[in-house]
Design a protein around this nucleic acid. Structure first.
Length: 831
RNA sequence: GCGGGUAUGGUGGAAUCGGCAGACACAACAGACUUAAAAUCUGUCGGGAGUAAUCCCGUGCCAGUUCAAGUCUGGCUACCCGCACCA
């Protein structure tokens, strides 16, 4: 056994252990039915070039969980890979003339090196990259599976277009009218595109949120809002003088008799038919053009004044048969519901404003109980509950009953049906970009749209492509790629030149990890079902809707297809907070970036990990503090020094610990030791409060120092136990230091292969406890009493206490509340 | 507008089931060691009154429940996040 260096030198030990772990394949995992399985996963990164502190935080959290579960005896899967397709690679090609593939693979090597320098316990044999042929082959295979199941379809639609990225975007990728990646304004464009029928799964995506007990409420609520389910009634208005019907959707059919007009969205096809050849034709057409030329943001803002125009046509009210005017207005969305709504000014805020502006009649049909509404006295629509009035046969019903009654009546009359509507739209998955998985479809002049046969996959990305910023997909310019033969009839055909949204690649990667080298199927059933679902998923809140919703959708489809037997991919989700500097997110433009590499080379990976886990609980934002980093570094040094101090003692330890022969100082140290085991185990395993786990270990180290200061001759077996426990508790957080000290001070073998320490309930027991004595709820005294006293004895001891007697003299004791081993509260009344 | 979250010393944060508010750190100050500095070690460290023992106040604000409230209930305020003309 060599003597420990006086000083801790991270650089001396970290690389050595990293190489050792790699050579030993220390974290490689196989299926093993003898041990319970545990799948811990951090969201795989986009290979942008360098790790940032957010990555370090993400991986440190995952690594602590993985190492902890491993030591607890679980068979742990902890893989890493690369979300490697996407725009930045193409931008680099355009800007610097580097091929996206070269750029990406170079970045992957660099970031992998940085990850390894952090000492993360990944099973590197399972590494994947979505841009690898053997990965995107299966992404394409899954596209075909969706196509076969009727879940992939092509349609022309008004879609989101980002000029700067020169591609379309899914609704989920438009944030406040701006592109999620480059933040430039998104505009609408009519294009024929591939969609995934995620709306078919809307109800299940919503309902199954209830089963996700291990997800933050925040994320579930966001998905709930995004899916946006509403229950209502769809019914038709007849158009006076036309053989046409206007279907409308409403959730407030109780206000049916308050309808004083009907509104169509400007895009509604009926508009043209109603105005053709009329006086209004030119004016309405001009209005529609104006609205359609407005940007998405301008148009959908609630701030913008509602505008509309009368079409000249009238609809027939289904109940009263009255004629109501048909308008076109900017506030009606064509994509939602039926693209037409009934106008009820008295009971809808938007309709109130619109009717007010254009002088349309308002009619009260719902009256709050015990009150009479007067139109003249109203400043706003009444949208609350009430009883129906002015509604013929439905008068006197409360609004909820009326909803049912009117829906029943409509259904009986054959005029309408109850309908559930969702805000969620189908997922637009085609992208007019090069660096993605090609959509495996062929357009044949004879056969139409033909899928590429699965055995011909992958449809490979050609390497030689010109990159310029034109608005066509770069693949469309490569003749050898585009020109092909129809797999059905052999005729000359054209390939689809769009690639898939990168979110498709990341919607199933967690399943590929379970069987990453399979060349015949995406993953083998036995393997995927052994590991799935992911027990603990860790990542940023920015994916609350995007990646997490898509992955849930994929899992459900794959379950329906019999590929996997779970319907939810991620059992528990931890959304980590951001890493801030000077109060804002680290970013190049703000110049407040701290590079992980610098920190690792200055202090070591252990310090970086320890600081980032100690500074805040994982869900909260974390303020970077150079002084905090120094503090973490100091703590590691403190552990190192006390270990060096006791190295000779540990070398002598041979006899087992005699628990009955411990002195007071030893008992105290051992009690702290075992309380720490309990706290750290609970903090890591149940609460994910790594900051308090670390502070508990710090207290333990402080207790070891205190023991050293008062005890000239240390108890060698106790020190053996103390360091054995301390290093195992430290192992998940600071794996290199723990490993180094373990190898120098204790038995052969890796600390990471040791079992997690059990706590000894006997050691934690105390003979005396300090209890708090309150008088009328205020702390007045502290007494040391024997542990485990019952309430009666506690009360007796407290009432006998001189100070208590003095303080309660002359007062009547009304009540005494006793909490065993903790507190006694004496309630007194004056007098 | 709807939904969700957050608010505790100079700072990050702790208090897990309603039971001593401020654990553990950071910073600051004082001291020890040193020729000196660094490193390390020790002490003080929410506010106020008092020589002191001790007492009063204090977890965004206002009420309430309770023997007891940072924690529970009701009502606000500020900030952050999501959705938003969704009929």
């Amino acid at each position: 056994m060599a003597e420990l260096n006086e000083r801790y030198q991270a650089q001396d030990i970290e690389e050595r252990w990293q190489q050792r772990w790699e050579a030993d394949k220390a974290f490689a995992t196989q299926m093993n039915r003898q041990r319970p399985e545990y799948y811990v996963l951090e969201m795989f990164p986009y290979p942008s070039g360098n790790l940032h502190m957010g990555h370090v935080r993400n991986y440190s959290i995952g690594d602590v969980i993985a190492r902890f579960r491993n030591m607890q005896g679980y068979n742990v899967l902890h893989p890493m890979g690369w979300d490697a397709f996407g725009m930045p690679a193409e931008n680099a090609a355009i800007k610097h003339g580097i091929h996206p593939a070269d750029w990406t693979w170079d970045n992957i090597s660099n970031m992998r090196r940085q990850q390894k320098a952090l000492g993360l316990s990944y099973d590197w044999d399972r590494e994947i990259a979505t841009c690898h042929e053997e990965y995107y082959r299966w992404t394409q295979w899954l596209f075909l599976l969706f196509y076969e199941r009727g879940l992939a379809y092509k349609k022309k639609a008004s879609v989101n277009w980002c000029d700067s990225c020169a591609t379309v975007l899914a609704n989920e990728q438009v944030i406040d009218g701006h592109c999620w990646r480059c933040d430039s304004e998104v505009r609408k464009k009519d294009l024929e595109q591939w969609f995934f029928r995620i709306t078919d799964y809307a109800d299940r995506l919503l309902a199954d949120l209830d089963d996700l007990k291990g997800w933050p409420d925040r994320v579930k609520t966001m998905q709930e809002n995004w899916i946006g389910r509403s229950e209502g009634l769809e019914f038709n208005f007849d158009v006076d003088g036309f053989d046409e019907k206007i279907p409308v959707y409403t959730t407030r059919q109780d206000t049916l008799c308050g309808v004083s007009y009907v509104v169509l969205a400007p895009e509604h096809p009926l508009v043209e038919r109603l105005i053709a050849g009329t006086e209004q034709e030119a004016a309405v057409r001009a209005f529609v053009e104006t609205v359609r030329s407005q940007s998405e943001i301008a148009r959908t803002s609630t701030e913008v004044e509602k505008e509309g125009i009368f079409t000249g046509a009238y609809a027939v009210h289904p109940l009263t048969k009255a004629l109501v005017p048909i308008w076109v207005a900017n506030y009606v969305l064509y994509e939602y519901g039926t693209g037409a709504v009934m106008g009820v000014p008295a009971h809808d805020e938007r309709d109130w404003l619109f009717a007010g502006k254009y002088g349309l009649p308002k009619k009260i049909v719902v009256s709050p109980v015990g009150e009479t509404l007067e139109l003249d006295a109203m400043t706003d629509a009444y949208t609350g509950a009430g009883v129906l009035v002015n509604s013929g046969q439905f008068d006197g019903l409360d609004d909820e009953t009326a909803k049912k009654a009117i829906a029943d009546w409509m259904e009986k009359e054959g005029r309408g049906t109850r309908r559930v509507n969702y805000r969620l739209r189908d997922w637009l998955i085609s992208r007019q970009r090069y660096w993605g998985a090609p959509i495996p479809m062929i357009y044949c002049p004879q056969c139409g749209i033909v899928p590429v046969p699965k055995e011909q996959l992958p449809v490979k990305l050609p390497r030689n492509v010109r990159f310029d910023q034109s608005n066509v997909s770069p693949l469309a310019t490569v003749d050898e790629f585009v020109n092909c033969t129809c797999p059905v009839c052999g005729a000359a055909a054209r390939r689809e030149t769009d690639t898939m949204d990168t979110f498709m690649c990341s919607s199933w990667y967690y399943m590929r990890y379970t069987d990453p080298r399979n060349t015949t199927v995406p993953f083998e059933e036995s393997k995927v079902n052994y590991w799935m679902p992911v027990d603990q998923y860790i990542g940023g809140i920015e994916h609350a809707i995007l990646h997490l919703l898509y992955s849930r959708f994929f899992t459900k489809v794959l379950k329906d297809a019999g590929l996997v037997n779970v319907s939810e991919p991620f059992k528990n989700l931890l959304t980590q907070g951001m890493v801030l500097k000077d109060g804002s997110k680290m970013s190049k433009s703000k110049g407040n970036v701290v590079s992980p590499e610098e920190i690792v080379s200055k202090y070591g990976a252990d310090t970086a990990r320890l600081f980032i886990l100690f500074a805040a609980p994982p869900e909260r934002d974390l303020e970077w503090s150079e002084q905090g980093v120094e503090g973490a570094y100091r703590f590691i040094n403190r552990v190192w020094r006390i270990a060096a101090h006791y190295q000779p003692t540990l070398a002598e330890a041979s006899a087992p610990l005699d628990r009955d022969a411990l002195g007071e100082a030893e008992k105290t140290l051992r009690r702290v030791l075992h309380i720490t085991i309990k706290r750290v185990t609970d903090d890591i395993g149940n609460r994910f409060n790594f900051n308090t786990a670390i502070s508990a270990i710090m207290e333990l180290v402080n207790a070891v120092y205190a023991y050293r200061d008062q005890q000239a001759a240390p108890n060698a077996p106790l020190m053996q136990e103390t360091f054995s426990v301390l290093l195992r508790l430290l192992a998940p957080f600071v794996p290199h230091v723990a490993e180094e000290l373990w190898s120098q001070l204790l038995v052969e073998g890796s600390v990471h292969k040791q079992s997690w320490p059990d706590f000894d309930a006997e050691a934690v027991k105390v003979s005396e406890v300090e209890i708090v004595v309150q008088i009328n709820g205020k702390v007045r005294e502290k007494l040391v009493v024997p542990a485990g006293l019952d309430a009666k004895k506690m009360e007796q001891l407290v009432l006998e206490d001189a100070k208590v007697q003095q303080l309660t003299a002359g007062a009547t004791i009304a009540k005494v509340v006793c909490v065993p081993d903790k507190l006694v509260n004496v309630v007194v009344k004056k007098g």
